[in-house]
Simulated assay, not measured.
Amino acid sequence: MAPALLQASSFRFSFALLAFFSLSNYCSCFNPRLYNFTESKDASSWSVAGATWYGSPNGYGTDGGACGYGSVVGTAPFYSMVSAGGPSLYKSGEGCGTCFEVKCTSNAACSGNPVTVTIIDECPGCVSESFHFDLSGLAFGAMAENSQADQLRNAGQLEVQFRRVECNYQGYRVNFRVDPGSNNNYFAVAIEFENRDGDLSEVYLQQAQNPNEWLPMQRSWGAVWKLDSGGTALRGPFTLSLKSLQSGETLVAQNVIPAEWQPGATYSSDVNF
């Protein structure tokens, strides 16, 4: 049945071997604390988790990631404020795109102020606590008092508090990045920048030539969804229908993939949750 239409690795316990990079390499034009990325739902819903960091001290951690976002996590609207999640956060890929506030008070360098991160990778070995964030170096340091980011990263591992919040990629619409292996019989796409819940439970594809048929896509891995046509050529343009995992809200990106789509290309819709 067609969905209702609504318009609108390896455990990276890396301390970077304490190879201190000069803070002068970090662009002072961006302050993670000041970026209005999310809005909390419940001021009393903090839980406890473990936190480590990986990658370069001021980098975005992942060199690819188990969600399929690639290096885009180092640019707007993520701004490297990202994290790999232990199994209870990554959720076999279902947790990709979810947003959390994370803060620390367990170290003298902690500011106690929350920073917002998006789950963009998996940390399968992060199982010593019920919840674990393997943060990017930049996100880990952003929990520190001013000028104490390196001191906080030196701690390597911390106890933190966290809570889930709504994603709010201001000014951005949902993006669809076509997998380089896609062809006329197999179509796969990484779905990025979903506001609010950030995660998806269902994706359907509709071909312009058959507007009465919605073809269900399957989660390939992470945030990548796929459709194998079974040998029947798929013909664009494609309309994609997305169903949010948490709220069940449905969003339709009409004709977002053009007729002459290209593997590896990214197509931006004009809608978001």
Rank of each mutant, 00 (worst) to 15 (best):
Y69N: 03
G141Q: 09
Y79K: 05
G125I: 06
G86H: 02
E129N: 12
M143L: 12
A108L: 02
C123K: 04
S111V: 05
F78H: 13
P124L: 08
C99N: 08
P87K: 05
P57I: 08
K91N: 13
C67S: 09
S83M: 14
G97N: 04
S88L: 05
T105C: 07
T116P: 00
G65F: 11
G93D: 03
I120C: 09
A109E: 05
A76K: 12
V102A: 12
F140G: 04
S80L: 05
P77A: 00
E122A: 14
V115F: 00
Y90E: 02
G70P: 06
G85L: 03
F100N: 10
V72P: 02
G74W: 13
S106F: 02
S136I: 14
G137C: 04
L138A: 11
H132P: 00
T75G: 05
F131V: 14
P57F: 11
Y90F: 15
E122I: 07
D63Y: 11
T118I: 15
G59W: 09
T118F: 04
L138C: 03
I120P: 01
V127I: 15
G125L: 08
S56T: 14
N113P: 00
A66C: 08
E129F: 07
S130A: 15
S106P: 00
L135P: 09
N107Q: 08
K91Q: 12
A109R: 07
E122P: 00
G95I: 01
V115M: 09
G125P: 01
T118S: 06
T116S: 15
S128Y: 07
